[in-house]
Structure formats: structure tokens, C-alpha cells
């Protein structure tokens, strides 16, 4: 079984407890600018989207790293700070923008799933972020979609 963070933006209220928990776990301080998960606040649309690394199987970041600082640990792409030289090539390669340069350390930072116990999911008060079996994810989304009984679009048409 492979576990992953499953994010449901519909449940997010933008409280940013995930950012606080992530930064505290990784830096020992409350500092959202150094969080590996970020809540994008599209407040003019009333939408909030937590966003972090999806742990690509064929990871661009890992493949472009010139010094081999990013390794695959049971599916999780982990940055080894002692090897990382801060060249930022991985931040260019990542199509999703979830590997970022951290000026405070001079290294890149990305989600490492906290070694299997992600702080963000634990801190999320609305279950917008859950840590679950990756195989279940697709089924769960389909089930939720099928359960929607919103007929408003048809009625308006």
C-alpha cells in the first residue's frame, strides 16, 4: 500500500494550520514562508487551495538534480540538505511549483511527507488534507461526484 496526501479544496477554509504545522515540524518555528504546503487564497472567488508536492513517480526534480541530492525513499522524493547546493534547477523543472528555494537555508525545500506522519494532515481541522491509501483516492473522488444531487445547472438551462 502506498500512502499519499489527498487534498480536497472544497473543504479548505484557509486557516493555514497546515502551514503552521509544516513549518514547525521542519524548522522548529511558526514560519509559513518556510512551509512545504501552501494555501492559495483566491478570495475574490471564495476558493482556497492547499497545494504541495504530489510525489511524482518519474520525478522531474529528482532527474534534473546535478548532484543527486533528491532521492526516492519508498515513493517519497526527499531532498538531502547536506548534498543540495542550492542551484534551484529542480525548481525550474518541477511543473507544479512545489519545490522551492528557501533563502534562510540556501537549500531547496519540498514535502517529504514528514517520514510517513504528515503534520499538515494531522493539523487540518476540516479534513481538507488527509493522508490515505493512494489507490483509494480515485474511487473516493468518483463516489463523491456520483453522490452529488445538485440539479441547479439543469434547472437554469
Amino acid at each position: 500500500m502506498e500512502m499519499a496526501l489527498v487534498i480536497d479544496p472544497d473543504k479548505c477554509t484557509a486557516c493555514r494550520q497546515c502551514e503552521l504545522a509544516c513549518s514547525f515540524r521542519h524548522t522548529g518555528a511558526f514560519n509559513p514562508a518556510r512551509s512545504r504546503i501552501v494555501v492559495f487564497d483566491f478570495h475574490t472567488k471564495g476558493r482556497f487551495v492547499p497545494y504541495t508536492c504530489t510525489q511524482c513517480d518519474q520525478a522531474w526534480c529528482q532527474q534534473v538534480c546535478p548532484v543527486g541530492a533528491i532521492t526516492n525513499e519508498n515513493g517519497v522524493k526527499v531532498v538531502h540538505e547536506d548534498i543540495c547546493v542550492g542551484c534551484k534547477v529542480c525548481t525550474i523543472a518541477c511543473p507544479f511549483g512545489t519545490v522551492n528555494y528557501d533563502p534562510a537555508s540556501g537549500k531547496v525545500i519540498k514535502c517529504d511527507l514528514c517520514g510517513g506522519d504528515p503534520a499538515c494532515a494531522e493539523a487540518c481541522p476540516t479534513e481538507a488534507i488527509v493522508y490515505t491509501d493512494i489507490a483509494v483516492q480515485g474511487f473516493e473522488k468518483m463516489r463523491q461526484w456520483a453522490e452529488r444531487v445538485d440539479t441547479a445547472p439543469q434547472a437554469n438551462a
Binding site: 472544497d10 477554509t13 484557509a14 486557516c15 493555514r16 494550520q17 503552521l20 478570495h43 471564495g46 476558493r47 482556497f48 481541522p125 476540516t126 440539479t151 441547479a152 434547472a155 437554469n156
Partner: peptide, 20 residues
Amino acid sequence: APGRKPNLVGRKACFACPIG
């Protein structure tokens, strides 16, 4: 009314608030 959406479309929390 039938076919209408409710006034309330979502909720929003302040910083670090578990209530929202």
C-alpha cells in the same frame, strides 16, 4: 426557490482558526 442556489456558498476561517 426550486432550481436556485442558496445564499451561502462556503465558509472561510481566519488565521489558525479551527472553527471557521
